[in-house]
Design a protein around this nucleic acid. Sequence first.
DNA 1: ACTTTTTCTTACCCATGGGTAACATATCGA
DNA 2: TCGATATGTTACCCATGGGTAAGAAAAAGT
Lengths: 247, 247
Amino acid sequence: MDSAPPVPPSSPPSSPWLPFESRRRARDEKREAVLRAAVQLFLEQGYHRVTLSEVAERLNITKPALYNYFRGKDEILFECWSMGAELVDSVITEINAGGGSGLAKLRKLVHAYAGLMATDFGASLVRFDLRDLTERNAGVARAAKKRIDATFRRYIAGGINDGSIRPCDPKLAAFAIAGALNWIGHWYRRDGGLSPTEIADEFTVRLTEGMATEGRQQMTKKTPRAPKGRNSGRKTTGKKRTGGGTR
Amino acid sequence: MDSAPPVPPSSPPSSPWLPFESRRRARDEKREAVLRAAVQLFLEQGYHRVTLSEVAERLNITKPALYNYFRGKDEILFECWSMGAELVDSVITEINAGGGSGLAKLRKLVHAYAGLMATDFGASLVRFDLRDLTERNAGVARAAKKRIDATFRRYIAGGINDGSIRPCDPKLAAFAIAGALNWIGHWYRRDGGLSPTEIADEFTVRLTEGMATEGRQQMTKKTPRAPKGRNSGRKTTGKKRTGGGTR
DNA sequence: ACTTTTTCTTACCCATGGGTAACATATCGA
DNA sequence: TCGATATGTTACCCATGGGTAAGAAAAAGT
């Protein structure tokens, strides 16, 4: 996780700064170690069957020590969830920064998201029950989910507009794609016969091949044509917004 | 509270059979009422947050009364789950009984399954955690899940064989489709803007349009190599009330 | 060194909720 | 009318596990 350089300039014991910094870093590292142990156990056994003593035991400490880093069990759950959300957010930010048609962006998102679902923190994003959180944290989580859902829809709608995606209902299409992706978090096993990249590659094709405007055989070539002008493909069910994306 | 007919054909005291029958029927009805109340609460609040007293309260009885019908909380959960599994099983049985290409069968399954995900017992199939069950019941549930998954794969593989579906990996394709469908059980809301049939119709198209061998514009045109005659709009939700073993 | 702060442990509290025992009451068969 | 059998109630048990209090034991600061 920490791909950062391993304490680059800390060999000389001269700097009065480093002690403080390294100390705070040590604390953060321990905090994250708790999250890693917790997320693993939560996924393995389910939140309600995991006791804090169990989490602590795996870290060679005792339960009350955990309270030095977290206010309670539900906060640990939330922080795990947040780690996953941050991963997705950074993926989205990166895709948004780049260019490409709506279809191209959608495919990037599908590919990266599929890969995330094969990680612990990624899977926690869809396997944890938000009702276990405090109302406040649940609100934050719902908002994050909504943003992600909106991104899927935006890419699809954008693709319809720029002609790379055939007209369809962005809402339902996003649900279908996100559903297939989220489900990875439920069935993927590290020791299974499928590698994350295999899954991501295959899903990227499978989930978008039906909606592309271009020829079905290869998707590398692109002919951006805008046949229908401004008409977005909103057809049935264009009624009301009822909150919830993924709940 | 008893919405049941007040002892329909039991006025004549002649038949020695009916009393027994009607009595057993009354019991089964109550049992099912418990399941309906339970599944609703479990979906609403999550299994662990629902207390048996709460379930009982909704039925105007008290907690210990529940133990006349079930051995414990986990058995209630299992029976709810089983109700959903039976619905899917009967759908599959019906599709198997009919004919059609692999693609046609797959579409029927997708359509019916999507509809089921919008019901309480159907959603319980994917929203309950099997780890809350006893090892024995969890085994039964796993087996049922496996059968369902195998059916998806069989239809896809069959479709590839009969030429109605373009070659692909049946395993991953089944995961993608089942994932999108299962996810319905997580986001569907009765009071949302989408009706179950709308969802089912749209998903049937969206999830299979990419894999069909025939032209992409419309799929009602011709049948590729497995002529089946008219099979278009088969609206089914096979209902096969299987008595359910009263233990 | 010795004081202060952070970190962690031992020992507890106690609300929760599944499950049970004993008793009450319909319901049924005769 | 009268036992026998369901069916339901009140009152209780108690394991579980999140959370806390008080004080060691390290680190850090001086």
